[in-house]
């Protein structure tokens, strides 16, 4: 154990101690941080996950603005009871285009990772305006102000910013952002162009006011797509074991 006797030299010399600390931090950083950028097995290879449509993205921004993550998680953990209640556990792939992700860690309200399609648009609107109208025991605040018009003048800029951080929006998608947003909020045609860019997007006006795109339209479009992109009947369980 003679090598450990030299420990005192390291600890009693400010210069060597500083170098030693620096080396430790570098190793810790390399091992813990670098693989996050290079590791390819974290994100499961599943079909169907696409960037959010402009309307969904605008709704997502409202979700963040209103602080929904303070009470709602979007992370179904791989536990038996959670799966029985909410459905398939969340995959990393399902939030790969989330900047920032909305996994959250507190559940005053239920998890929302698979809320898409669970309730009707009509329910979401009533519930958002005054939760107690539909769920008398709810403690969620009302969000009636979401009935105001959505400010989406800068939506193309939003998509451009997301592209910079790695969301694969095409130039055409960015160019058509405003048009796609309006089409999704106002048309319910199954042949809409926005559906070709963003499959499974929920079409149509949700708040009974088809002439104006409201914040409610955007938020509900976002909620209705949550957890619906991956078709789990086509996913082999062994392929997503981690």
């Amino acid at each position: 154990m003679s090598v450990f006797k030299h420990h005192a030299k390291l600890e009693t010399n400010v210069f060597f101690l500083a170098v030693g600390i620096l080396l430790s931090v570098i190793v810790g950083g390399l091992v813990e941080v670098v693989p996050l950028f290079t590791i390819e097995s974290t994100i499961e290879k599943v079909e169907g996950v696409r960037p959010y449509s402009p309307l969904e993205q605008a709704g997502r921004d409202i979700y963040v603005r209103e602080g929904c993550y303070n009470c709602h998680s979007q992370m179904i953990r791989p536990f038996k009871d959670e799966i029985e209640r909410y459905g398939h556990y969340s995959l990393a792939a399902e939030s790969k285009y989330d900047h920032p992700f909305q996994w959250a860690s507190k559940r005053t309200g239920p998890d929302l990772a698979r809320v898409g399609g669970k309730y009707t648009n009509d329910w979401h609107v009533r519930h958002m305006i005054n939760p107690r109208d539909v769920v008398p025991e709810s403690v969620m605040p009302g969000y009636p102000h979401l009935m105001r018009p959505l400010n989406y003048a800068g939506i193309a800029g939003n998509l451009t910013a997301l592209k910079v951080v790695g969301v694969p929006y095409t130039d055409a998608q960015i160019m058509n952002a405003k048009k796609d947003l309006e089409e999704q909020a106002m048309s319910d045609s199954p042949d809409a162009a926005v559906l070709k860019s963003y499959p499974k997007a929920k079409m149509g006006d949700v708040d009974g006011n088809p002439k104006v795109v409201t914040e409610m339209d955007a938020l509900v479009a976002y909620l209705q797509v949550l957890g619906t992109m991956v078709d789990f009947t086509t996913v082999k369980p062994e392929k997503i074991y981690r």
Binding site: P35, T38, I39, E40, S41, P78, E238, Y241, R242
Partner: peptide, 17 residues
């Protein structure tokens, strides 16, 4: 962690499995 992957371990443990 390795460059693209991670060591699986001899027991092959996976929480999802």
């Amino acid at each position: 962690p390795t460059i693209n992957d991670y060591s699986r371990g001899m027991l092959g443990y996976s929480s999802r499995a």
